[in-house]
């Protein structure tokens, strides 16, 4: 498992995002418009879920995406998976702009990028039997000849650790871990190259989490998969990823190979996150939570988004948005402190 250790090797990138933003706007309805005419101060509310994110993922790489709840990591994952259209920026897959693809290629790209969802309860259609959940897309897109479909589905179920005898059952007849395996089999059925795992183990018991994570790693080798692994759980990401992205309020604040990041975090936010990871250590330890709440993405603070909670905040942080600059081999960080240190 030798993964490319820099994002800069863009030439080999399988998936590349440049300047991706995703805004959700709540338009004013007719009543609100009338109220506005009469003098009410109503504005359209725009949530900047993802704000100008660029990243590159090489083939075979496992990239961890970490952030607090509501920081936009799931939205970014959905943009990558093609479920959401980006408001700005381009998604490039194998060197081609995904939005510009047509017909057959568009379909092939859509199927090549699959997603594993967080909630195994709601990610399976409760009205369909397992065989249909896994086999539907295969049948509709004619990926496998009709007579072989049953065997194909049975084989997939075996691959993800499910007994093919259960293929006539409904999702509610399975446990959480089994349902997540069904979700994985569904994604694998269309022979993807790239899997976006959105908190794929967060809803599972710890013992089951380990099983599913191991399954991901086995499948990575068997199918030569590339992962974007979204999680709020630093332990899981450390265990799994080659490279880690830290996201805060819609922006990527730090990007580094896993060992480097966990060994020597650069960004104050990353440092704060890592400091609070519960560890098995002798002696008592007092946790110091990061002060303050994550700000609302409707009204993000100007300059560096982290400055209201940052212990090192300076005047510049309140005004100027820090760019994501290289700080070492394969490492990037968006913090003005790096400039200060250098300058």
């Amino acid at each position: 498992m030798t993964a490319p250790d820099t994002a800069a090797s863009a030439a080999a990138a399988l998936m590349e995002l440049s300047g991706i933003s995703k805004r959700f706007t709540r338009r004013l309805d007719a009543a609100a418009k009338i109220a506005q005419l009469l003098g009410a101060r109503l504005r359209e509310e725009t949530v900047h879920a993802v704000d100008d994110v660029s990243l590159a993922i090489a083939e075979g790489e496992v990239v961890g995406l970490v952030g607090e709840s509501g920081c936009g990591k799931s939205t970014l994952g959905r943009v990558v998976a093609g479920i959401h259209q980006a408001s700005a920026g381009t998604v490039t897959y194998r060197g081609r702009d995904v939005a510009a693809l047509e017909g057959r290629e568009r379909m092939a790209t859509a199927l090549a990028i699959q997603m594993i969802f967080q909630d195994p309860m709601s990610s399976l259609n409760p009205r369909l039997r397992v065989a249909e959940i896994i086999g539907e897309a295969v049948r509709v897109h004619r990926l496998v000849p009709r007579p072989d479909l049953d065997d194909y589905v049975a084989d997939l179920m075996r691959r993800v650790g499910l007994d093919p005898d259960y293929r006539k059952r409904y999702p509610h007849q399975f446990s959480g871990g089994q349902r997540q395996r069904i979700g994985i089999a569904r994604a694998l059925a269309v022979r993807p190259e790239f899997l976006v795992c959105d908190e794929a183990v967060a809803a599972l018991d710890v013992s089951i989490q380990a099983q599913v994570l191991n399954l991901f790693m086995e499948l990575r080798q068997d199918f030569n998969l590339t992962y974007l692994f979204i999680s709020h759980d630093l332990g899981v990401v450390e265990h799994l990823s080659d490279r880690v992205l830290i996201m805060y309020l819609g922006r990527i604040v730090e990007e580094a190979p896993t060992e480097a990041l966990f060994g020597d975090p650069n960004h104050p936010y990353t440092q704060a996150l890592l400091a609070e990871v519960p560890r098995l250590e002798p002696g008592r330890r007092i946790f110091k939570p990061i002060t303050g709440e994550i700000p609302s993405p409707i009204n993000p603070p100007p300059g560096c988004h982290f400055h209201p909670r940052c212990p090192h905040a300076m005047e510049r942080c309140r005004v100027e948005r820090p760019a994501l600059r290289p700080t070492g081999p394969g490492r990037f960080s968006a913090c003005h402190l790096n400039d200060e240190a250098r300058g």
Partner: peptide, 25 residues
């Protein structure tokens, strides 16, 4: 719910998603 997103991700047609996934539920 996520199964609709999953169906979108599997590049199923709108008609199929609406009448086969959304409608029965």
């Amino acid at each position: 719910k996520e199964y609709i997103e999953a169906a979108t991700c599997l590049a199923l047609s709108h008609r199929r998603i609406v009448f086969r996934h959304l409608l029965p539920n």
